[in-house]
Computed example of a mutant assay.
Amino acid sequence: MARSDLADTSCPVSRAIERVGDPWVLIILREAFLGTRKFDDFQRNTGASPHVLSLRLKQMCGDGILAKRAYCDSPLRYEYRLTDKGLELWPLIMVLHGWGQKWLGGQGVMLTHKACGARFAPQLSCPGCGAPLTARDVRAEISPDFQTEREQREEDHR
């Protein structure tokens, strides 16, 4: 499957990867969750070239992940803020943080729950019983639409 085809599937994983699977998008998200708002700060903190950063910020605004807002009129300057849609990507960044810390090393940032002050590592848990979840604890069921797509790909592959 070509990357351009990722948006044209019923699989939400593929469609999400098409929107936020670019490494620069993920690094920009990391920075946005750390409080970065201004172009120059994104550039300094990510190491992205102005051209790459400009393209990704425009894409993320177009996708509704970030909102561009003027903060200075003379000269005209903008800041980028996470939208509700962007804020819902927090678990993705937290899972990447936890995985990277465990398997690749480095602390990066420490996470502290604002309400109680406890330090924590990201963890998925069941909304029903609260038990921690791993891949071995979950059963995935393929939707009929996605199953049809998979069968069509198998047919096309022959």
Rank of each mutant, 00 (worst) to 15 (best):
A2Y: 07
L6G: 02
D8I: 04
S10W: 14
C11W: 00
C11S: 03
V13L: 13
V13R: 10
R15N: 05
R15K: 06
A16V: 02
I17T: 05
R19D: 00
G21I: 02
D22P: 01
D22Y: 05
D22T: 03
W24C: 03
V25D: 05
V25R: 05
I27Y: 05
I28L: 06
I28H: 01
R30Q: 05
E31P: 02
E31H: 07
E31G: 14
A32C: 07
F33I: 03
L34S: 12
T36P: 00
R37T: 15
K38M: 05
F39E: 10
F39S: 06
D40Q: 13
D41L: 04
D41P: 01
F42M: 02
F42R: 01
F42G: 00
Q43N: 05
Q43P: 06
R44W: 05
N45S: 11
A48M: 00
P50H: 10
H51V: 15
L55R: 03
K58N: 15
M60I: 06
M60R: 01
M60E: 00
G62Y: 07
G64D: 08
I65W: 03
L66I: 08
A67G: 01
A67D: 09
K68Q: 14
K68L: 11
R69C: 09
A70H: 00
C72F: 03
D73C: 10
P75Q: 13
L76D: 00
R77Y: 12
R81E: 09
D84G: 10
D84E: 15
D84V: 11
D84R: 15
D84L: 10
K85Y: 04
K85N: 14
G86V: 10
E88C: 11
L89I: 02
L89R: 02
W90C: 09
P91E: 13
L92H: 13
L92F: 14
M94K: 00
V95F: 05
L96S: 07
L96W: 03
H97A: 02
W99Q: 06
W99M: 08
G100E: 08
K102P: 00
G105F: 01
G108N: 12
G108I: 04
V109T: 12
M110I: 15
M110F: 04
L111C: 03
L111P: 03
L111Q: 07
T112D: 07
T112C: 13
H113R: 04
H113I: 15
K114V: 14
A115G: 08
A115W: 01
C116P: 04
G117T: 06
A118Q: 15
R119F: 11
F120H: 11
F120S: 15
F120C: 14
A121V: 13
A121Y: 11
P122V: 07
Q123G: 09
L124V: 13
S125E: 08
C126Y: 11
A131T: 11
A131L: 07
L133K: 09
L133H: 11
R136F: 12
R136W: 10
R136N: 13
D137H: 11
R139P: 02
A140Q: 13
A140G: 13
A140Y: 14
E141W: 08
E141D: 12
S143Q: 09
S143E: 03
D145F: 14
F146E: 05
F146N: 06
F146K: 07
Q147D: 14
Q147C: 10
R150I: 15
Q152I: 07
E155R: 05
